[in-house]
Amino acid sequence: MSTEILAPMPGTIFQVHVKEGDDVIEGQELLVLEAMKMENPIVSTAAGKVKDVQVKVDDKVATQQLLLVIE
Protein backbone atom coordinates (compact mmCIF):
# COMPACT_ATOMS: atom_id res chain seq x y z
CA MET A 1 0.00 0.00 0.00
CA SER A 2 1.34 3.46 -0.81
CA THR A 3 0.64 6.87 0.67
CA GLU A 4 0.79 9.99 -1.44
CA ILE A 5 2.14 13.15 0.17
CA LEU A 6 0.48 16.18 -1.41
CA ALA A 7 1.19 19.91 -1.17
CA PRO A 8 -1.36 21.45 1.22
CA MET A 9 -0.83 24.88 -0.31
CA PRO A 10 0.90 26.58 -3.22
CA GLY A 11 4.53 27.49 -2.64
CA THR A 12 8.17 26.73 -3.29
CA ILE A 13 10.11 23.69 -2.13
CA PHE A 14 12.63 25.02 0.38
CA GLN A 15 14.22 21.82 1.74
CA VAL A 16 14.01 18.11 0.98
CA HIS A 17 15.08 15.95 3.92
CA VAL A 18 14.63 12.48 2.40
CA LYS A 19 15.62 10.54 -0.69
CA GLU A 20 14.22 7.49 -2.35
CA GLY A 21 14.79 4.35 -0.35
CA ASP A 22 14.84 6.11 3.06
CA ASP A 23 12.81 4.56 5.84
CA VAL A 24 10.52 7.09 7.55
CA ILE A 25 8.14 6.99 10.46
CA GLU A 26 4.80 8.70 10.97
CA GLY A 27 5.18 12.37 11.86
CA GLN A 28 8.72 12.64 10.50
CA GLU A 29 9.52 15.82 8.58
CA LEU A 30 10.02 15.00 4.88
CA LEU A 31 10.42 18.39 3.26
CA VAL A 32 9.73 22.06 3.81
CA LEU A 33 7.41 24.09 1.61
CA GLU A 34 7.80 27.85 1.70
CA ALA A 35 4.64 29.89 1.23
CA MET A 36 4.08 33.57 2.02
CA LYS A 37 7.55 33.79 3.65
CA MET A 38 6.69 30.99 6.09
CA GLU A 39 8.18 27.51 6.20
CA ASN A 40 5.68 24.67 6.32
CA PRO A 41 7.10 21.30 7.35
CA ILE A 42 5.51 18.51 5.36
CA VAL A 43 5.43 15.41 7.55
CA SER A 44 4.87 11.77 6.77
CA THR A 45 1.36 10.55 7.44
CA ALA A 46 2.53 6.93 7.49
CA ALA A 47 5.56 4.78 8.25
CA GLY A 48 7.32 3.21 5.29
CA LYS A 49 9.94 3.64 2.61
CA VAL A 50 10.25 6.74 0.44
CA LYS A 51 9.47 5.62 -3.08
CA ASP A 52 9.14 8.49 -5.43
CA VAL A 53 10.37 12.04 -4.70
CA GLN A 54 8.80 14.20 -7.37
CA VAL A 55 10.17 17.60 -6.34
CA LYS A 56 13.50 19.29 -5.71
CA VAL A 57 14.58 22.49 -3.97
CA ASP A 58 13.21 25.68 -5.60
CA ASP A 59 10.42 23.85 -7.45
CA LYS A 60 7.15 25.72 -7.44
CA VAL A 61 4.18 23.56 -6.51
CA ALA A 62 0.40 23.96 -6.55
CA THR A 63 -2.12 22.92 -3.94
CA GLN A 64 -2.67 19.14 -3.97
CA GLN A 65 0.36 18.54 -6.21
CA LEU A 66 2.06 15.20 -5.55
CA LEU A 67 5.34 15.66 -3.69
CA LEU A 68 6.42 12.11 -2.92
CA VAL A 69 5.12 8.68 -2.19
CA ILE A 70 5.63 6.52 0.90
CA GLU A 71 5.34 2.78 0.38
Binding site: V24, I25, E26, G27, Q28, P41, V43, S44
Partner: peptide, 9 residues
Protein backbone atom coordinates in the same frame (compact mmCIF):
# COMPACT_ATOMS: atom_id res chain seq x y z
CA UNK B 1 -0.05 13.14 21.72
CA UNK B 2 3.27 13.59 19.94
CA UNK B 3 4.19 10.71 17.67
CA UNK B 4 7.65 9.22 17.16
CA UNK B 5 8.21 11.15 13.95
CA UNK B 6 7.57 14.46 15.69
CA UNK B 7 9.92 13.45 18.48
CA UNK B 8 12.60 12.58 15.95
CA UNK B 9 12.20 15.73 13.87
Amino acid sequence: ELNKGQMLS
